[in-house]
Nucleic acid binder design. Structure first.
Lengths: 332, 332
DNA sequence: TTGTATGCGTTATCAG
DNA sequence: CTGATAACGCATACAA
């Protein structure tokens, strides 16, 4: 158990071959006689040799590591996506360096810098807002990047999303059809392309139903549970009877505050959550929700990234996955 | 924008100094004249030079990266801990390679192997069960390891936990005091040291209250929401009127199934959740829960790991953080 | 099929 | 205070 790192040279010596040969068998190169391969394998086992990935990375310029940046891993939304990323990543033998950005531009820039210095082979970026500085940094990086749940207006960066415009239209229409006249929409910052798309979908649905658009019924959510709770009163005051809430935690907060006020959901108030993360099913009543294929968003993004990293042909780098609205018990 | 990786040599040439000097200023070595330092800094800025962390890692044998292995990041429980780890890690300039193990021993071994080959400076391990093979691998690693929310019976590995025995005793006693005679305990596998500790605390509380221990009221949970739901009926059949549920998601499942059956919580059935992850507060009614300082568990673990990595003095490597029971509305 | 030699981009030792 | 120069552990082009 003295162990001073055993290197490829040690293996070569014990196996009676050159280090190049050892390297070949370690890397599965076919040009090795079966007999020598076995000798090397034996020596590796005997010495308990483990290739040094850092040295390998320096020599090959590939680290088999991807950087993943997201607002916060404590969000079930991002956690689900990250899980999809990791599963595909490990399937392709990549590891994932994960960093929380809290949607803070400075942190994002710093993390990006670190990722690049660590020579990650690719980057997966999630963030509601795509700041212009970050967008440029991402674009200029000589490392493949895939955005998830984040829209690059210029469509220069590869991305995987759902059709936010359509989902907003559908959710709003569903609430219109069950008789609601005053429908609120709670979404993230309107500076994000994703939310302007939602806004348009919302407006279209209203117009189609002959309902006048009221700017006062659109709220910028901040992803917090507490905000959802706080919103309950304001919505009630305005006579709102239904709401689409893009952020699940906020939707759950709203629901819980309404229930505590004795408002019947869905009889007196309908809610549609926006991402169908697990928590929407942990509430009582369970919430109707737009089902974003979170895991798949991550999985598909990572798969796309592998292609980019391996310089494979990619015909379309703006991927849009299907969503659906799952009716549970927070709508009629 | 042609950019073929600019190295320390390029900077040296432009600054008119040797690479050694560049290395010094990059690493904040004091032995550099202010004037030359400025020249180097200018050259770095001009060339947009970024140190290659891989080369640095090979030369210095330090990667400023720690490996984090956990069952699944989609669990709010582990996600909260991971957030604590990452915050402290980045505070100390470390990055986090995250890997999901699904509590699968083979995956754990494989991940561990990968972490070591990537030369991580330290490892944070979370997993309900600590398999003997994994325990040995961890113990033999020449890399510092800290367990979180995981008990090593031999106390050889550093760890950060709460007092599971005490928390079980307190939760059970609370339910006893509000008049319950049939109290169920739903916890993870009894093969885990953590849960045998809980079991003892549970039994002690019952004995103290003169209530006979009934093995049939102890269930092995599997962390799923669905299992919580399924358990509702069985508990009711047995005449159980209260339960301590170590896993939050299972507790939430149980609560929702009871509510749907028209059982009043807490009037007819009391529940205490075991980890106070955010979802326990998203339910209606909000759940009384043992509050494990999840974020702190991660933060303290990472802090401890930094000490181990820097070979600082550590007087105690078996850390126990305080917990509390937060009374909300799923208990009387 | 195998071996030799060189380079990857730093850190670190040792002179000066 | 600064500059050569030797590792670091491996991949790989080139020879044999």
């Amino acid at each position: 158990m003295v162990e001073s790192t055993t290197t490829i040279y040690d293996v070569a010596r014990v196996a009676g071959v050159s280090m190049a040969t050892v390297s070949r068998v370690v890397n599965g190169n076919a040009n090795v006689k079966e007999k020598t391969r076995q000798k090397v394998l034996d020596a590796i086992a005997e010495l308990d040799y483990r290739p040094n990935a850092v040295a390998r990375g320096l020599a090959s310029k590939r680290t088999t590591t991807v950087g993943v940046i997201l607002p916060t891993i404590t969000s079930t939304y991002f956690a689900a996506i990250a899980r999809g990323v990791d599963d595909i990543a490990s399937m392709y033998k990549y590891n994932m360096i994960l960093a929380n950005s809290d949607n803070d531009v400075e942190k994002e820039e710093k993390v990006l810098e670190t990722f690049l210095s660590k020579q990650v082979d690719g980057i997966v970026y999630m963030g509601s807002t795509l700041d212009e500085k970050v967008r440029l940094a991402l674009k200029n990086a000589r490392t493949p990047v895939v955005l998830v749940g984040t829209i690059d207006g210029d469509k220069e960066l590869a991305s995987v999303n759902i059709d936010y415009h359509l989902s907003a239209y559908q959710a709003t229409t569903k609430l219109v059809n069950s008789g609601n006249k005053k429908i609120a929409y709670i979404m993230g910052s309107l500076k994000d392309a994703e939310n302007t798309e939602r806004m348009v979908g919302y407006q279209e649905a209203l117009i189609e139903a002959g309902i006048e658009f009221d700017e006062g019924l659109v709220f910028e959510g901040n992803y917090s549970y507490e905000q959802g709770r706080a919103l309950a009163e304001r919505l009630l005051e305005k006579g709102v009877t239904a709401a689409v809430v893009a952020q699940d935690t906020t939707a759950v907060g709203l629901l819980s505050a309404l229930m505590e006020k004795g408002i019947n959901v869905p009889e007196d108030f309908e809610i549609i959550a926006g991402a169908n993360s697990p928590i929407t099913q942990y509430t009582y009543p369970r919430m109707t929700s737009v089902n974003q294929p979170l895991y798949d968003l991550g999985a598909v993004a990572m798969r796309l990234l592998t292609k980019l990293m391996l310089k494979e042909e990619v015909d379309e780098n703006q991927l849009v996955l299907d969503h659906e609205i799952i009716s549970r018990h927070s709508t009629k």
